[in-house]
Simulated scan of single mutants.
Amino acid sequence: MQADWLWGLAGGGLIGTAGAVYLLVNGRIMGASGIIGGVVDGSAGKQTSERLWFIAGLFAIPLILSFFIGKPETNLTPNLAAVIGAGLLVGVGTRIANGCTSGHGVCGISRFSLRGMVATVFYIMAGGLSVILFKHILGVV
């Protein structure tokens, strides 16, 4: 559809607003991988409840919105092994980079963080190379 870019614009605006509110309220960067990682590895401490609510919102809000605006079309591969492998690689990559798209890309770049900008350039390049390798060369997705 021609107006699909509007959904991306709205989503980007919401993510940016959420990042700003999270920073103003908590004094910390809204990096989803760090929030989830702290719950998984037990380092969240007193913030575990807050982080679990954040994670619940990541799942609940799209589900709730899908009842009102419908489910979007996706190009997700039916290859479950590829989806699981990709998820694991993303998890490893966020640990190596000490952050993810929300921490480095959204919050880091908006704060003019050199580390965030460099990390964003590298994970965008890695994503592009992964598409070339796994889709166009190997044909697994």
Rank of each mutant, 00 (worst) to 15 (best):
T48P: 06
L129E: 12
L129Y: 09
I61Q: 00
P62I: 12
A119F: 02
G34H: 05
L80G: 05
A86V: 07
I96G: 01
L63M: 15
I35M: 03
I55P: 03
A44T: 03
I132L: 12
G127D: 08
R95G: 11
C100S: 00
T17W: 15
K46Y: 13
N26T: 07
T48H: 14
S102F: 06
F59C: 09
F68L: 07
G16T: 12
R28C: 06
S66W: 08
C100I: 08
E73T: 12
I137R: 01
G103I: 05
G91D: 08
G127H: 09
I35Y: 04
F134Q: 01
G116I: 12
H136W: 05
F59N: 06
G34Q: 00
R28K: 08
N26I: 00
F68P: 00
A86R: 09
F59S: 00
M125N: 02
S66G: 03
I64W: 01
Y22T: 02
G127M: 13
I55A: 04
V21S: 01
G99A: 03
G12V: 15
S49D: 10
W5P: 08
I69Q: 14
S102Y: 11
M30G: 06
G42W: 05
L114M: 13
L58F: 09
G12C: 00
R111I: 04
S43I: 15
G37Y: 11
L88E: 02
V106H: 15
V25G: 07
A126G: 00
A32T: 10
I55C: 10
L138F: 14
I61F: 10
V141H: 03
C107P: 03
P62Y: 07
M30I: 02
F112G: 03
G70E: 07
G19R: 04
P72N: 03
R95K: 13
E50Q: 10
F54C: 07
A3D: 06
I84G: 03
F59G: 06
V140N: 01
N98V: 12
G19F: 02
W7K: 04
I109V: 15
D41M: 09
L114R: 14
A81W: 06
S110A: 14
R111E: 02
Q2A: 10
H136Q: 11
T77F: 15
G128N: 13
D41H: 04
N26W: 15
G31D: 06
I55K: 08
V25S: 08
D4G: 04
F112A: 08
F134L: 13
L133A: 11
L76Y: 10
L52Y: 04
V39P: 12
